[in-house]
């Protein structure tokens, strides 16, 4: 009979034996060594039925299909733009996928997106050789103007977004800022200077306390108290 050596939410490190015997399956972040299942990354154990997988706690962003990411234009070619994805691999934004507007033949593409501009786009394809294509056709995909971009750990992005976007909409409501969270760990914030500062400190707090229980309540309290303080100062 198989034996599981770890509990849910344990922190494990590479080489640690998670389970013995063939009764369990190795999920992501684990590998099978003989009859055992061992960890191959630093991660949080998540036991899902008979599958043992690890939730990564660190590591860089790697582009994945259907991710919405914030990119920066680094080069302009004949047929589109090369964008930096905050990962080891840059992506191609082709002319056809860039905008629904009509672009005249021979137009200067730098008039549309210049080098250094930031855009929100969606990953449409990733090849095995990590050639990445992105598109800007879709709701919410746009060029970013104004505001500021904050770098966060990409593993904490799901926490910043929250269930069905609950966390990010809470921050939006409390600070009056426009916020776009990219899966690649870049967050765009645009609003009043005080609102932006408040949103940044809230996001940093989420990053620090990402795996603690009662995160939503803590952040709600944090945002609430901040707003009251601000009001108190103004009055």
């Amino acid at each position: 009979m198989g034996k599981i050596n770890v509990k849910d939410k344990d922190v494990v490190i590479p080489g640690e034996i998670l389970a013995e015997g063939m009764d369990n399956f190795p999920g992501s972040g684990t590998y099978r060594e003989g009859d055992n299942i061992a960890a191959s990354i630093v991660g949080l154990v998540s036991i899902d039925g008979r599958t043992i997988k690890l939730i990564p706690l660190s590591g860089r962003y790697i582009p994945k299909k259907f991710d919405t990411i914030i990119c920066k234009v680094i080069d302009v070619n004949m047929s589109g733009w090369r964008v930096d994805t905050n990962s080891p691999y840059s992506a191609m934004l082709s002319l056809k996928e860039a905008t629904s507007k009509f672009i005249e033949r021979g137009a200067d593409l730098r008039q549309i997106y210049d080098i250094g501009d930031s855009v929100v786009c969606k990953v449409t394809n990733v090849t095995s050789q990590m050639l990445v294509d992105v598109s800007m056709k879709g709701p919410g995909l746009m060029k970013l103007s104004g505001g500021r971009i904050l770098g966060v750990e990409n593993n904490k992005v799901p926490r910043i977004i929250g269930k069905q976007g609950s966390m990010v909409s809470m921050i939006k409501d409390a600070t009056g800022c426009n916020i776009v969270v990219g899966q690649n760990g870049l967050v765009w914030i645009n609003g009043s200077p005080e609102g932006e500062m408040k949103a940044i400190s809230a996001i940093h707090k989420i990053e620090q306390e990402s795996h603690m229980s009662g995160l939503t309540d803590n952040i709600k309290q944090f945002l609430g108290s901040k707003i009251e303080n601000k009001d108190g100062e103004k009055n």
Binding site: I13, I41, L57, S58, R60
Partner: peptide
């Protein structure tokens, strides 16, 4: 290397 989140067989 483990801290960087890379896939490793062991330390």
């Amino acid at each position: 290397l483990a801290d960087a989140g890379l896939e490793m067989k062991d330390l």
